[in-house]
Amino acid sequence: MPRVSSKRQITLPINQCEALGIEPGDEVESFVADGQLTIIKKVRGAAKGLLREVQANPAMTDQESLESALK
């Protein structure tokens, strides 16, 4: 079972990395929603054009936006 180091680092199990195609040097994104930590592999160009039609709400914080998107 992975443990958190004193530097707050986590080593991901190799079988999980292989299943997701995560290689040394790859960039990942992590976020917390509903008390769960989620880690995803960043893929260049994966969201290109995805938000073209979305209008920003400057009154909403990033955290509020993330939480509303996950509901």
Rank of each mutant, 00 (worst) to 15 (best):
S30M: 06
A59T: 00
I14E: 09
L20C: 05
A19L: 00
V4R: 09
Q9L: 14
E64I: 08
D26W: 06
I22P: 01
R44W: 03
Q9S: 10
E23G: 03
V4I: 10
R8C: 12
G49E: 14
T61E: 05
V32M: 15
Q55T: 12
G21A: 02
P2R: 04
K41N: 01
M60S: 15
P13K: 04
L50W: 00
R3V: 08
A69P: 01
V32I: 11
S65C: 08
A59I: 00
R52I: 01
L51P: 01
L20E: 09
A69L: 15
A69M: 15
L66H: 10
A59H: 08
R44Q: 09
A47D: 06
K71Y: 02
S65H: 06
E64L: 03
K42P: 01
E23K: 15
E23R: 15
L37E: 02
G45V: 03
E18S: 09
N57F: 06
E64R: 03
A59C: 04
R52Q: 09
K7I: 00
Q9T: 07
K41M: 02
P58G: 01
S5D: 13
G35E: 15
T11P: 03
L50Y: 12
A33H: 12
S68Q: 14
L66M: 09
V4Q: 09
S5N: 09
L51V: 01
K42T: 02
Q36N: 12
S65E: 05
P2N: 11
D26L: 05
A46I: 00
S30P: 00
Q36Y: 10
L70Q: 05
T61C: 10
N57I: 00
I40Q: 08
R52E: 11
Q63E: 14
I39Q: 08
K48I: 07
T11M: 15
N15H: 12
E18C: 00
A33N: 06
M1R: 12
R44A: 15
K7R: 14
Q16S: 03
V32T: 14
P24Q: 11
N57G: 03
L12D: 05
A59K: 15
N15R: 13
I10T: 06
T38H: 10
V43D: 09
V43F: 02
G35S: 11
V43S: 07
L70S: 03
K42E: 03
I14W: 02
E18P: 00
